[in-house]
């Protein structure tokens, strides 16, 4: 997929660069609150129009996990929610069952399958909707802050699931407020006020973060722990 000469709605400057999302690539999109991360994902998904430019998707299909997972729940029970995209795609019951079992195991949510979604915590709902998104027959997954309500072990489970999706050739674009997650991705895009300021490989990130004054949570945690110890 190529995003060419794009200019997001409600922003004064254009994105600044042509962007390519390669097959099997995992991209982390970082930027301050209100900088346009969600707007960019929504434009790629076709939920909103660009002010200018175009998105060349060819025959690529896109699925998006919304920032607030409660906004995309359709069914009452977890297993019905997970079956929904498969049923919609015309898959057989046996095939669907096998796919639901696999994704539930990848995301460690087997124990939630029989639960009513309204009884789940925010984090559990987020995991269920990540699973539902992965069960769509899309080529590109747009994940808007998928780890915002997950604890660190669950964040690692999420990224191991994304790694599995990337192995299957899926492209993944993830937004996050946590730059610490760079190490789980191939590429990092840094965004500011509707403009992509730079695209870097994960290896370049430590140096780049210094240049852009991006501080890792882990650095501040260590500093604070030293302070407490004194």
């Amino acid at each position: 997929m190529i995003i060419r000469n794009a200019h997001l709605s409600h922003f004064t400057s254009p994105l600044g660069v042509n962007l390519e999302i390669k097959s099997g690539e995992s991209i982390l999109l970082l930027g301050n609150s209100g900088c346009g991360k969600t707007s960019l994902l929504k434009a790629i998904a076709g939920f909103s129009d660009l002010q200018a430019g175009e998105i060349e998707a060819g025959d690529k299909r896109v699925a998006m996990l919304l920032q607030n997972p409660f906004h995309q729940i359709i069914m009452q029970l977890v297993h019905d929610e997970l079956y929904f995209p498969l049923k919609n795609a015309g898959k057989s019951k046996e095939e669907s069952e096998s796919e639901v079992t696999k994704i539930a195991s990848l995301l460690h949510i087997e124990h939630l399958l029989d639960r009513d979604i309204s009884t789940l915590s925010f984090g559990e709902t987020q995991l269920v909707m990540i699973a539902a998104t992965c069960l769509t027959e899309a080529d590109i997954y747009l994940m808007d802050e998928p780890t915002s309500h997950l604890d660190p072990p669950k964040i690692m489970i999420f990224y191991s699931c994304m790694k599995e999706m990337a192995k299957r050739g899926k492209s993944i674009c993830i937004t996050s407020q946590s730059p610490d997650e760079y190490c789980f991705n191939d590429t990092v895009w840094i965004m500011d006020d509707g403009v992509i300021k730079g695209r870097f490989s994960a290896n370049e990130c430590p140096e780049v973060f210094e240049r852009y004054h991006i501080v890792l949570d882990s650095t501040l945690v260590n500093m604070r722990l030293k302070e407490i110890a004194q």
Partner: peptide
């Protein structure tokens, strides 16, 4: 309850 989920470090 989870007051920083959508905040960057400066905020």
């Amino acid at each position: 309850d989870e007051p920083t989920t959508a905040l960057n470090m400066a905020y």
